[in-house]
């Protein structure tokens, strides 16, 4: 039997338009929120791990009420416990505040293995997995590309190719894209998820020495030049050499 925690983050859909108004990204204008793609690879691996070893999974998210959706979606796939970490007035938290709040929930879950994505699709940071690992005193295998739950063993890239590694629990595992996409829920799962209870956890996160000054849209590149037909290739190579100076 194995106790597993999965950290899931709700992020804007990849195709969502991000608009900045009043020096701040306008989150209200984002209409489509999804589970961060790398977290989905982690969740699928966790489900397979549980299937082989037995036990249960706790899904943990940090976010406002809308983030309940990622927990319910996980419940529809067979995740037993759902925890949302949040307290009004928290935003914006810095990395160490996020990690500390999540670490409390992870430890309360009694998890031996903590699965999460290598980074979230909104902040693109990659700090949470290793940071939580440090706080709970666990090793962390980062950017896993393949796994074998029977060991369990995990594959990560190395300077000479890739390597299969093992680690003793408790451990944190961060996932890159693997070969296994997240399964779809069945009707029974969706019905069960509707009744699933979400535990709300808040608490003290301390102060931060980071303040957000402003958000801005990225600088627009000047429009490029478009050429018709393969005959233009020599001209483009010339421009790369003389104008761009990159070859």
């Amino acid at each position: 039997m194995v106790e597993i925690a999965v950290l899931l983050k709700q992020v804007p859909d990849t195709t969502a338009r991000i608009t900045v108004s009043g020096d701040k990204v306008d989150e209200d204008a984002i209409t489509s929120w999804v589970t961060s793609p790398y977290d989905e690879y982690a969740l699928e691996a966790a489900l397979q791990h549980k299937e082989v070893a037995g036990g249960s999974i706790t899904a943990i998210t940090l976010g406002p009420a809308r983030a309940d959706k990622v927990l319910k979606d996980a419940a529809a796939l067979g995740v037993e416990q759902l925890v949302r970490v949040w307290q009004d007035g928290w935003e914006p938290l810095d990395s160490i505040q996020v990690q500390a709040a999540l670490a409390v929930a992870v430890q309360a879950s009694g998890a031996e293995y903590v699965y999460c994505g290598k980074q979230a699709a909104d902040t693109n940071q990659g700090s949470t997995g290793p940071g939580v690992a440090e706080i709970i005193g666990a090793p962390c295998i980062v950017e896993i590309t393949d796994f074998d739950v029977s060991g369990p063993t995990f594959t990560r890239s190395s300077a000479t190719g890739s390597e299969k590694v093992t680690v003793a629990a408790p451990a944190v595992l961060t996932f890159s894209k693997t070969t296994t996409e997240l399964r779809r829920p069945n009707v029974r799962g969706i019905m069960m998820a509707k009744r699933a209870q979400i535990e709300l956890v808040g608490g003290e996160v301390g102060t931060t020495n980071v303040s957000v000054v402003r958000h801005a849209s990225p600088a627009q590149k000047p429009p490029g030049k478009t050429f018709e037909g393969a005959d233009s290739v020599p001209e483009v190579v010339g421009l790369l050499r003389d104008e761009a100076k990159v070859i």
């Binding site: 804007p12 990849t14 991000i18 900045v20 990204v25 810095d94 990395s95 160490i96 699709a121 909104d122 902040t123 693109n124 940071q125 990659g126 700090s127 940071g131 931060t208 020495n209 980071v210 303040s211 957000v212 000054v213 402003r214 958000h215 801005a216 849209s217 990225p218």
Partner: peptide
């Protein structure tokens, strides 16, 4: 705190990094 993937830096300490896969920039 750790701030990852910084693309601009000036004394202060002022730090810029992309968010939302580069669809916006954040100054901290």
């Amino acid at each position: 705190p750790v701030i990852q993937d910084v693309t601009a830096l000036s004394p202060g300490l002022n730090v810029t990094h992309p968010i939302y896969s580069g669809k916006a920039m954040q100054d901290l």
